[in-house]
């Protein structure tokens, strides 16, 4: 992955709550469809380590953070609205 076109995404979840499970599945699907080979996902389970919520000031779960490309962006929810995710992450159709 290169800095010019790579997406570094971090998804905060809480165990296997329905929204967490849905968010993981939706994010994976969206990335495969719109960012094939250009993304990296890190999934943080705050049930296992709640302290990790501090770094990105996570209040609601699930929350997706776009770390790269900058600027840092945040989307709250289970990512079931693909259009909203694409707009929120500033992803242009390839």
């Amino acid at each position: 992955m290169t800095e010019t076109n790579g997406y570094n995404l971090r998804l905060y979840v809480a165990g296997q709550t329905p929204k967490s499970i849905a968010a993981i599945a939706n994010l994976k699907k969206i990335c495969e469809q719109h960012l094939p080979g250009r993304y990296e996902i890190e999934i943080i389970d705050l049930m296992k380590d709640p302290a990790l919520a501090v770094r990105h000031q996570i209040v609601a779960i699930p929350t997706l953070i776009r770390q790269l490309p900058e600027p840092l962006k945040r989307i709250i929810g289970d990512l079931s609205n693909t259009e909203k995710v694409l707009v929120g992450l500033d992803i242009r159709p390839t």
Binding site: T17, K19, L46, I58, V59, A60, I61, P62
Partner: peptide
């Protein structure tokens, strides 16, 4: 939270 898009809070 109000819309039910999340099911956990910190």
């Amino acid at each position: 939270i109000h819309q039910g898009d999340v099911d956990a809070v910190v």
